[in-house]
Simulated assay, not measured.
Amino acid sequence: MKSAKLFKALGGVVAVMVVCTPYAQANDTLASSVAANPGSSAKAARAADKQLARAVRAALASTRGIDVSGIAVRASGGAVVLKGSVPDAAQIDKAGDVAKGVTGVTSVTNKLVGAPHQGQGR
Rank of each mutant, 00 (worst) to 15 (best):
G114F: 00
G39I: 09
G77F: 11
S76F: 12
A47Q: 14
C20L: 15
K50R: 12
A36Q: 06
N110Q: 07
K94F: 01
A31C: 02
V102M: 02
V13Y: 06
V73C: 02
S33E: 12
S69K: 08
L30F: 12
V14W: 09
G70R: 04
G121P: 11
K43A: 15
K83S: 15
V108G: 03
A61S: 14
V13R: 05
I71T: 05
G78D: 06
A15T: 15
A45T: 15
V68P: 04
V73I: 06
D88H: 00
P116S: 14
D88N: 05
K100N: 11
I71M: 03
D49W: 03
G70Y: 06
K100H: 10
L30P: 03
A59I: 01
A15H: 08
P22S: 07
T109P: 00
N27Q: 13
G101R: 00
L52D: 12
A42F: 15
L30E: 13
L6G: 02
K83P: 04
M17C: 14
K5S: 10
A4I: 13
V34C: 02
V81E: 08
D67S: 12
A15S: 14
V102E: 02
F7H: 07
V19P: 08
V13E: 09
A9L: 08
A115W: 01
G39Y: 12
T103H: 05
S76K: 12
A48D: 15
R64I: 01
S85G: 09
P38L: 06
D28T: 11
V81Q: 03
L112M: 04
T29R: 10
K50N: 13
A48R: 11
P87R: 04
L82M: 03
P38S: 09
N37L: 13
V98K: 00
A48S: 15
S69W: 00
G77N: 15
V86F: 01
T103W: 02
A36T: 05
Q91G: 01
G39M: 13
V19D: 08
D88P: 01
R74L: 10
N37P: 09
T29Y: 06
V102K: 01
V16A: 14
K111H: 08
V16K: 00
A53Y: 03
P116W: 05
A35T: 09
M17S: 14
V102A: 03
N110R: 01
A75M: 05
S32Y: 08
A99P: 04
G119Y: 10
N110P: 11
D28S: 11
S41M: 09
A15N: 08
D88T: 01
A47V: 13
D49I: 08
R54E: 14
L82W: 01
M1C: 07
A61K: 07
T106R: 09
A44D: 15
G114S: 13
T63D: 04
S3F: 03
A75Q: 04
A53P: 07
V19H: 03
G101P: 02
V102I: 05
A9V: 07
A15P: 12
